[in-house]
Nucleic acid binder design. Sequence first.
DNA 1: ACTTACGGTAAGTCATGACCTACCAACATG
DNA 2: CATGTTGGTAGGTCATGACTTACCGTAAGT
Lengths: 105, 105
Amino acid sequence: MTYQHAITALADPTRRAIIDRLRSGPLPVGAIAYGMDISRPAVSQHLRVLSDAGLLTVTPSGNRRLYAIAPDGIDELRRYLDNLWGDALAAFARAAHDQAKRPKK
Amino acid sequence: MTYQHAITALADPTRRAIIDRLRSGPLPVGAIAYGMDISRPAVSQHLRVLSDAGLLTVTPSGNRRLYAIAPDGIDELRRYLDNLWGDALAAFARAAHDQAKRPKK
DNA sequence: ACTTACGGTAAGTCATGACCTACCAACATG
DNA sequence: CATGTTGGTAGGTCATGACTTACCGTAAGT
């Protein structure tokens, strides 16, 4: 049921950029924000949205907070799409079949 | 490169509802809009966004226009997520490994 | 040809959310 | 304890996009 939040979160290009930075491993907020053309608070807000959506995990470590991609969250969305894809293929095949049944008209 | 449009299109709940109506097969605009709590023009606009994103195909048939889910469009997004998921798992495993290397601190 | 069904486009309104600049709390370090 | 570093929160602005009604084109039926 969480896939809705996940897809909403991933719809934003800035948030996808954040996710991309975390592809190689966990990072603290400062490192994520460094080199991006938005302010650090903006990054914080995006991180909030992403972790609320179950796409990131946070592990406070002393002064800082390490953000990492949560494979489980991605997987939820992946399953939704797999399901949709399956239905689309089935509908496609059925439509093609019906089409073949009556060639003219 | 089109997956960005696809994910933006699918981020909207109304558009997901439209997609859901097409899961069982192609439908004309009127049938899609029937029973939904938004106006038909609104549906038309959503259909535009969805087909621009490569998620739907349109086949004019006489007076009407049949919309159907395009499996290819879905697949693009699916691949993006599969890729992301793979990276997330790898990063996760690496982090776990590094963690094990130095148990304390 | 006239009328009805179907559906896309135009123009305008309104809510949402992405961003900014403060500001504040918590830990670390001298 | 004082000071710097790290990062979340508050409040406000502004752009985007999801809706509406009104309108127009086109295909079908009478």
